[in-house]
Amino acid sequence: MTTGTDTTTVRRSVVVDVPVERAFLFFTQDIGKWWDPNHHLLGEPLAEMVFEPRVGGSIIDRGVNGTESRWSTVLAYDPPTHVAFSWSINLQWQIESDLTKASEVHVTFTAQGESRTLVELEHRHLDRHGPGWESMRDAVGAPNGWNLEPFAQAVIAV
């Protein structure tokens, strides 16, 4: 799936049995319906996620007590084929406001017939997060922040 040469990009893909327009809208507008609810930076349970459908918009996590976390900027929004957004979270699990220090998630939706869509995701520029990768390892199993327990095996395996 990935090559050893491009060490700063992660690629994943999935085929979904829905039309391309549906896949695109669900991925963006309904992000809160598939995103892992444990993955947020709020100090309170996640109530909802908002994906602002325009370049320069944000992805916003909203907590049950109203706290907001704008952890991503929308970099491209071309329905129903392409969307890109920043991963503006640094390795200390804080919001990184400088886009040049954020990695980028690019997602392409390709129709494979009327009711089937190939979704290809590239998480690019991982090196922009700079030093401190080791803290990712430290964060695994941490009681606060993201629940990284499911990823412990992958990290430990490295």
Partner: peptide, 11 residues
């Protein structure tokens, strides 16, 4: 270090 980050995001 990057390999750790990659493993994390792949998963």
């Amino acid at each position: 270090g990057l390999e750790i980050l990659r493993a994390y995001f792949e998963s």
